[in-house]
Simulated scan of single mutants.
Amino acid sequence: MSDVLDLTCELIRRRSVTPDDAGCQALIAERLARVGFTMENLRYGDVDNLWATHRGSGASGPTLMFLGHTDVVPSGPETSWQSPPFEPTITNGRLYGRGAADMKGSVAAMVVALEQFVGAYPDHPGRVGLLITSDEEGVAIDGVRKVIEHFRAADERIEFCVVGEPSAKERLGDLIRVGRRGSLSATLTVRGIQGHVAYPEKALNPIHAFGPALAALAAERWDEGNADFPPTSMQVSNLHAGTGANNVIPGTLTALFNFRYSTASRAEDLQARSEAILRRHGLDFHIDWQLSGQPFLTPPGGRLRETVVAVCRDLCQLDPEQSTGGGTSDGRFIALLGTEVVEIGPVNATIHKVDECVAVHELEQLPAIYQAVCERLLV
């Protein structure tokens, strides 16, 4: 069994359902300490974060961070899996287990790559580091978001960041993420007047009142996107109203909706335009906004982006699609430091699903990709 496969299996066996790290970071820290890394354990609330760094003989140069998470989503009914989700199993060339693709495989590959890199180049210029959190799959409050506050206070400079999120579509290296859309969520309460359905003149139905406003929100063209991002999307994810009885007009309606927005829009403008539509339709409402992350982009010509593209071409024999699609990742917090951020990892077809898996041969190829990025940026 290869080193990266063995370490991935050890991590999968630890039932680290978010935000529980379940000892994964201690295992990683022990390995990296043996090859000269310095550890900083950053615990906030119930969340463990590990910042492991190695500087070559005091040499100056940039910092290259690898970023990952040890927490995983719940497995769902374990009887639905072909093998126990926290017992790594290899079948037909694939490693099965919760976190195999998202993202214990990438974390293991990063550890192995860093061990090999500092072994080959102990006096490398600059600094390499591994930041691991156990709060990526959860609320993401006490993980990398909080670590960034610590970095700012310590005046940490991070020039480059490689995120191990599963980015590939069909083959390792066929797609990398060079940015992400922002995520802005809203909880809207529309107030009406509860009453008997037989006497609508004595009530105000918030469902009926919200209908035209909802249609206007759904029809709004928020922006046209740009060369790097598609147009902003607004989606309603939940509507709730009523007492459960069919003869009662509800007194309130609650709607949840989300914007995935590009650099062509600002969160403040999306909020203002949404509220203007609601007021235009005469609604009595209250709205709470939550900004989960701002859009970010590592532009063409950036050193990290060009390096990762070249590595994919050389090691995977693929010209990767350079995408800003998908959801959000912890890269959105690192980008706030002015850091170039690129995501490259395994195929994402099975993430969060029953029978999550990763191809063993691609997992075993991943450390070489990460090590090549280190060599091309720091040697």
Score class of each variant (00 low, 15 high):
Ala120Cys: 11
Arg221Ile: 13
Glu224Asp: 15
Val190Asn: 01
Asp21His: 08
Arg94His: 13
Gly68Ile: 02
Arg145Thr: 06
Val47Asn: 06
Ile344Cys: 07
Ser75Trp: 09
Leu318Thr: 05
Gly326Thr: 04
Val309Cys: 06
Glu10Met: 09
Gly164Tyr: 10
Trp81Ile: 00
Leu217Asn: 03
Gly192Asp: 07
Thr63Asn: 09
Leu337Cys: 07
Gly68Ser: 11
Cys9Phe: 00
Gly338Cys: 09
Phe151Lys: 08
Glu156Cys: 15
Gly179Met: 01
Pro212Glu: 07
Gly119Leu: 11
Leu217Lys: 04
Glu268His: 02
Ala120Leu: 14
Asp223Glu: 11
Lys146Trp: 11
Gly211His: 13
Glu165Pro: 08
Cys24Gly: 03
Arg13Val: 01
Gln365Gly: 06
Ser134Thr: 10
Trp289Pro: 02
Thr187Arg: 11
Val72Gln: 01
Pro88Glu: 15
Asn258Glu: 14
Leu270Thr: 03
Glu364Asn: 15
Ala203Phe: 10
Phe229Asp: 06
Arg157Trp: 07
Ala372Gln: 15
Leu131Val: 12
Val311Cys: 05
Ser292Met: 03
Leu337Tyr: 08
Ile344Tyr: 02
Phe210His: 00
Gly138Thr: 06
Phe257Pro: 00
Ser83His: 10
Leu315Glu: 08
Thr79Met: 09
Thr324Ile: 06
Gln294Glu: 13
Asn92His: 14
Glu30Trp: 08
Gly99Ser: 12
Val354Ser: 03
Ser57Asn: 13
Ala108Arg: 07
Ala264Trp: 08
Asp102Gln: 10
Leu377Gly: 03
Ala29Val: 04
Ala335Trp: 03
Leu366Met: 15
Leu336Asn: 09
His286Gln: 15
Ile351Asp: 01
Gly58Thr: 04
Val17Ala: 08
Leu239Gly: 01
Pro230Phe: 10
Pro125Gln: 10
Tyr121Glu: 14
Arg14Thr: 05
Asn258Val: 01
Ala216His: 05
Ser262Asp: 01
Gly61Asp: 01
Ala335Tyr: 03
Leu270Gly: 02
Leu5Gln: 09
Pro367His: 09
Arg376Asp: 02
Gly97Leu: 07
Gly301Lys: 07
Thr252Asp: 10
Glu159Gly: 04
Ile28Gly: 00
Ala140Arg: 12
Gln371Phe: 02
Arg94Gln: 14
Val311Leu: 06
Leu217Phe: 00
Phe210Lys: 05
Pro230Cys: 05
Phe210Met: 10
Gly251Val: 08
Leu378Ala: 01
Ser329Tyr: 00
Pro299Met: 04
Ala335Gly: 07
Ala203Asn: 14
Pro346Cys: 11
Asp6Met: 11
Gly23Lys: 10
Tyr199Lys: 13
Ala372Thr: 14
Gly211Lys: 12
Leu67Tyr: 02
Met65Trp: 10
Glu220Gln: 15
Ala100Asn: 02
Asp330Lys: 10
Ala372His: 06
Pro250Trp: 11
Ile193Met: 14
Glu356Asn: 13
Pro230Ile: 08
Asp48Thr: 10
Val107Met: 08
Glu375Lys: 13
Gln371Ala: 12
Ser183Val: 03
Val373Phe: 00
Arg15Gln: 12
Gly325His: 08
Leu270Ser: 00
Gly173Cys: 04
Asp314Pro: 03
Arg332Met: 12
Leu64His: 01
Ala335Met: 07
Glu170Gln: 15
Leu114Met: 10
Asn247Leu: 12
Phe333Cys: 06
Ala349Val: 07
Val72Pro: 03
Phe66His: 03
Tyr44Leu: 06
Gly119Cys: 13
Ile12His: 00
Gln116Met: 06
